[in-house]
Design a protein around this nucleic acid. Sequence first.
DNA 1: CACTCCGGAA
DNA 2: GACGATCCGGAGTG
Length: 817
Amino acid sequence: MPSKRKATPLVQDAPKAGRASKVSTPGPATPRSVDSDDSDEAGEDSKELNKVIAQNVQRFDISFFPYMLPPGVTDTASIYFQPAQKRDFTDLPLKPDHHNRPLWIDAEPISRPAFLHEYRLTTHSLYAAVSVGLGPRDIISTIDVFLKNRMPPNIVRYITHCGKSYGKVKIVLRNNKYFLETTDPAVLQMLLKDPEIGPCRVQGAEEITTSAPTMAGLAIAGTKNAAGVREAGGSDKSNLNQNQTGRDPTTKEMFTTLNEDDDRNVIYAFQIKDEKVSTVAERCLTLHYPALEEYDFRNDYLNANLEIDLRPATQIRPYQEQGLSKMFGNGRAKSGIIVLPCGAGKTLVGVTAACTIKKGVIILATSNMSAIQWKNEFLKWSNIAPDSIAIFSSENKSVFTGNTGVIITTYSMVSNTRERAHDSAKMMLFITSREWGLMLLDEVHVVPAQMFRTVIGSIKSHSKLGLTATLLREDDKIEDLNFLIGPKLFEANWMELSQEGFIARVQCAEVWCPMSTEFYDQYLQADIRNRLLFCIMNPSKFQACQFLIKYHESRGDKIIVFSDSVYALEAYAKKLMKPYLYGGTGNAERQEILEYFRNSPQCSTLFLSKIGDTSLDLPEATCLIQISAQYGSRRQEAQRLGRILRAKRRNEEGFNAFFYTLVSKDTSEMFFSSKRQAFLVDQGYAFKVITHLKNIETTPGLAFTTPKERRELLQNILIEVERKSWAQEEEKESAALLADGNLFYGLDDKLSRRAPKRRGGAVARRIAGTLKDLGGGQDMAYIEQNKSVNKSVKKKGPHSAFFKAMKRGNERRRQLE
DNA sequence: CACTCCGGAA
DNA sequence: GACGATCCGGAGTG
């Protein structure tokens, strides 16, 4: 373990820590805290505290913050430690001078609203801490300095243990083969005997290497230098567009001195099967020997070097550099994840990493569009030759010309298990058969999905860098990233970035729209599936939306309205005469609308479906209204907010972006909404609740003010609900019926089976629906179908439904046999 | 363009 | 009794 390596100082963090300590409002982080920004009453105490923090922070490079208990509440000190079951630590002895000590938690952040920051100490966070160069003793003593109470011995043991076992096991790629390496023969034996790791070994291929890689002859810039630049970068945040330092602060300063690899020169290793790498990594983690990936790219003479460097004009922001310094902290490339908010320049981080390693790079993006964006960013920020960069997707299969280069592809392209097109297969062979220096994983939170994790195994790369804005999923697979890719190296603080003007300041609000009685009745009566539609189409919600659009348009904002329901999207947009965009919109039309929205002053409002959550780049938008959302998806909420974070106008004085969520009162939307907000609240955003929009009654021209209009609206919704359920049953029936093999018996069978669930009337209607289907009549669809070719109509075509169902039935039967 | 498979959310 | 379910998007292939 490197004893005292000087890590990069955290200049920005120190004053911030002080600010956080000015606690004026007691109480825990309530989701809806009042937005009271700068309460500038810095007492002498906190100034003193600042000093202490500043002194100690310098030695650490993890984003950690103290949080202070409110004055006067000194005797309920509590630390949130992961291994402990209870969260009350009142029985721990307090230090005599505890009032001078804030609590100081060194871990990954789980929640950081305005005044109270909650962090959690986990195995992963400790490993991450050690991986950036902190020894367990450093961690313990630093926490102790700021701790109000004595550290419980079990925590000490826990930290020490994590520190010891860390870094003993490494996964290394050599000559296109994966090896598990360790310097400790006992550990090697232990791993080989492990029932899970043992079988993953390639028999007869073990080896003992005696030549540990040395760092001799490496020109690594000193720490002093790096610190100086960081100082400069930290202080001139306002002039981030000017290249003030006059030199390229990118690669050299990222390295700090290193003095490990001292006397150990025997490495024990055995080869593991390519496809088992993630299994082994997972097992190692559970055995508390996390397998690291480190790439000594400067001493890699086997893989060709890539001619790539950052353009001289490219300026890296301090937080980006901070993240990168974690990755290259010891002169090698460590695998891991960097978390930055949307719009904070994730791509530039990736490009810089590529420029540092200067080997073959493979980039995995989520969509075709983002692949193209990656290419453009590479050309923009770096001097890479245009023929050294290629995109590999279904419509574009070029290869770079030289020995090595950059390949951009999509997850689904690589993880495709089905039969491939000919040149696609050839391309895959090319990709899987060579070694890559760096694998960049964009939107890395998608990787844990079963489909995508195969990517990790099939492409051999020396290091991996995952980038994401929202490191969260609603399932528990996010933890898997720790062994699939590596620890979280860096996470930016949203609030801090917005205070410094790197991303826009956002005002978040939740608007409660009352439900009119007739709608509420229908809502209660409706099937659980259709309930949401009534919430969304709630006339007062519509009015609120209209009002907000009007208000913000008059302020000159560019507005995006999000709706998950395509039906509602269309209804709203048509009624308000605004353009709308959803999945079914053709590509050409899509571009046209986007162009129109971007450039035309006449068009300042755009309606978007889920399509806008990712991949669409709309830097002009400054206001966002959400009229419906996907249940409780925190990720979606964060991504949508991200749409306006990169607002071009963010640097204008006093500029605010707005984020509204419209919620129908007393419906399930309320519950989901609060769930969705959780992540943003954790990031420090305060959601205001607006129960009544000022002057809404006196606003002229609002829709649905008369009972007649509302009745009509309700009628239309009911028709839609009907149509929907009809289409569903049609589908179900034809599917089920064909699966049974006999059309007519099957029909009877189905009907009698499901009859008890519904009343007689339903049965009659269902027969009608089925007959309609068989006969090819489309009368019902006619009502809803207007000039726009609706996707649902396409789907409902008797043809496709019929054959689809038949095929499905056949498939199922074949599988049974 | 049609078909297929997949993800994400309860 | 087993089995299945939703919607809306995306990408790849033919």
